[in-house]
């Protein structure tokens, strides 16, 4: 039986590396494998996808996976992102591994015919690695639910992360991270069934939820893109401490800070990507960060 896994992440979270780790892990376990990402104009924070197929028989399928057995969603804000649409085509009886702190509620009952496996990966990544890079963790979660042995997984993590040039220390920490996630979950017996109906490509029309189609003739219309869901951390200004020195405003690369009529700097949370330059540059430490709670 072929297991088809589709990873959805944000650029920089490690979706491509995750698909490679899982591929190598399955190869170590004796499977035939394929793994590959979508190549395009990816950016840090933008929705990206990658794929892994593994099977105990030769795989004759090629190309992107439109009807996966398992989807791995590395950021729960992607679930409602029309450009990512991670649950599309997921087979009946399939599994959705979701990085979230909201438990199974993260999918909001959108699919009752699949198994939802929630796991708080970002929290664990911050604990083990100090940064929200999830490749080893999400690969470990998918390896566990799809029944790949732990030693095969760890060998895959080790090999792939060395190949991308991580330091000895970082490889070790990623191995600990993968072990922790692997131990947290249990294997599933998946019996999947393709959804009825012809495969449809995700339509390219740009639909920004709740806003209709944007007027292409309006200049500066990128404000409806809402890059705010790229954030891992959320900056907040303490207006008691702030002296309106404007340094944060000057160095915000996004124009996501504006000066109100009262002369105070305001943050546009719809589009702030959470780069946190403002926090670093504020001479009075009047800006703090909290872990982002996901889209409201």
């Amino acid at each position: 039986m072929i297991v088809r896994v589709r990873f959805h992440g944000r650029g920089g979270q490690g979706a491509k590396t995750a698909s490679r780790i899982l591929g190598t892990a399955a190869f170590n376990a004796g499977h035939f494998i394929q793994d590959f990402p979508v190549y395009g104009a990816e950016r840090r924070g933008a929705p990206v996808a990658s794929f892994t197929r593994f099977s105990d028989e030769e795989i004759t399928e090629r190309g992107f996976i439109f009807s996966p057995d398992v989807v791995a969603v590395m950021d729960d804000s992607l679930i409602v992102d029309p450009l990512a649409n991670p649950l599309a085509g997921l087979r009946k009886g399939g599994c959705a591994v979701i990085n979230t702190t909201k438990g199974a509620d993260a999918v909001g009952g959108a699919r009752k015919d699949v198994v939802v496996v929630p796991v708080a990966l970002t929290e664990q990544a911050l604990k083990f690695l100090g940064k929200p890079v999830l490749s080893a963790g999400i690969a470990a979660a998918v390896a566990r639910v799809s029944g790949i042995k732990e030693e095969s997984l760890l060998a895959g993590v080790d090999e792939e992360l060395r190949e991308v040039g991580l330091s000895e220390d970082m490889v070790k920490r990623n191995l600990e991270f993968a072990k922790s996630i692997y131990g947290e979950l249990a294997p599933l017996k998946l019996k999947t069934e393709e959804l009825p109906g012809k495969e449809e490509l995700v339509p390219l029309a740009l639909v920004v939820s709740g806003e209709g189609t944007e007027d292409v003739t309006r200049t500066g219309n990128s404000t409806v893109r809402h890059t705010g869901n790229w954030r891992t951390f959320r900056p907040a200004i303490d207006y008691e401490k702030c002296t309106d020195c404007m340094i944060c405003y000057a160095y915000c690369p996004e124009s996501a800070m504006s000066v109100g009529s009262d002369g105070r700097v305001k943050i546009d949370y719809d589009n702030c990507k959470g780069c946190m330059i403002c926090l670093t540059e504020c001479p009075l430490r009047a800006i703090s960060q909290t872990r982002e709670g996901g889209l409201q």
Binding site: G45, T223, T227, C245, M246, A250, E254, S255, N271, M276
Partner: peptide, 22 residues
């Protein structure tokens, strides 16, 4: 000083560059 930086922005939020792009 930096306070003299014009407050009109002709770049709007929501561009697709990486976070922290110089």
């Amino acid at each position: 000083t930096l306070k003299d930086m014009p407050v009109e922005d002709y770049l709007t939020p929501g561009n697709t560059m990486c976070a922290g792009c110089g």
